[in-house]
């Protein structure tokens, strides 16, 4: 028997097709995706998720048709019963046992790695905060400075001053989170140019984050190793509002509005923290 027909025979067999696609999917997820420009390694949890999805898809493929299902099962049954495959059977038995043992060991072995964490980048804001002892209701709150359109240039100039005096070292000259100190932080300072930060938020949310900074966030927002200070200790309410004004003006984003807020997700089909 020459090599080519044998390969072709295997390639046409549903069992080996399934194995091949599984291996291919693994190669793509683990090695090809990180090679793409601007990409990075895929976390193990996501690899597992993708592989399970592919596996389920393959099982559906091999079993949605009687004939294919029967052919798919052939090699499995052969390994389990045929006398000539006694070696393969024994090897399989050993491999499966060892694999289960290894997985079980990996699950219970003690490690010193930090636990994986979920962090929601935009935790739910409180309805009300206390800013220097004064209660501020965040719900429905607009930037009060916008109520005086004639003075906006003045406020913007003021906000610019506040930004360059306080925010520049981390959030950078281009408001892109690439300040001089940025590389020293994990998580990185927010990139306001990105459409995933202030572009997604109401100004009152930004006010809350500037005023309260990293400490004291709700549990879902931790571990918030953020170096963001509690700016309420250093800036006045007006200064914070003016710097927010500056952020939106400079980046060109529009703050999320209240009235027409239709919910960023749908409970039936929406999800997560985008």
């Amino acid at each position: 028997m020459t090599a080519a027909p044998a390969v072709r025979r295997y390639a046409a067999h549903p069992f080996w097709q399934a194995v091949g696609i599984l291996v291919l999917a693994y190669i793509v997820v683990v090695w090809v995706v990180p090679l793409l420009p601007g990409s990075a390694i895929v976390p193990k949890s996501v690899v597992l998720q993708y592989m399970v999805t592919v596996l389920v898809g393959l099982l559906i493929y091999v079993s949605d048709n009687e004939e294919r299902w029967a052919r798919f099962k052939e090699p499995i049954e052969a390994v389990l019963v045929e006398p000539r495959l006694r070696v393969a059977r024994a090897a399989l038995l050993v491999v499966v046992t060892v694999l289960v043992g290894l997985i079980a060991y990996g699950q219970v072995a003690t490690t010193v790695a930090a636990p994986p964490n979920l962090r929601s980048i935009h935790p739910a804001p409180p309805t009300e905060i206390t800013f220097r002892g004064k209660s501020i209701t965040l719900t429905g709150l607009e930037n009060p400075l916008r109520a005086h359109p004639e003075s906006l240039p003045l406020y913007l100039a003021e906000g610019k001053g506040v930004y360059y005096r306080n925010c520049l070292p981390c959030h950078g000259d281009h408001l892109d989170g690439q300040g001089h100190f940025a590389s020293g932080f994990n998580p990185l300072p927010a990139n306001f140019q990105d459409n995933g930060t202030i572009a997604q938020l109401t100004e009152s949310f930004v006010f809350w984050r500037v005023a309260k900074g990293g400490p004291g966030l709700p549990r879902e927002g931790t571990p918030w190793n953020s170096a963001m200070p509690q700016w309420e200790d250093f800036l006045t309410e007006r200064e914070i509002w003016s710097v927010i004004l500056f952020l939106y003006d400079q980046t060109g984003w529009k703050p999320r509005r209240w009235e027409t807020e239709p919910g960023k997700g749908e409970s039936g089909k929406g999800k997560g923290d985008d």
Partner: peptide, 29 residues
């Protein structure tokens, strides 16, 4: 569901964010 989510957001945004982006965000995964 979309309509319901929308009403929740309009009623109270922080409730909406708790649902979609806060401690429940993994529920949607």
């Amino acid at each position: 569901g979309y309509w319901l989510g929308r009403e929740i957001y309009q009623y109270d945004q922080s409730m909406g964010i708790t649902m979609m982006g806060g401690f429940m965000s993994w529920l949607w995964v």
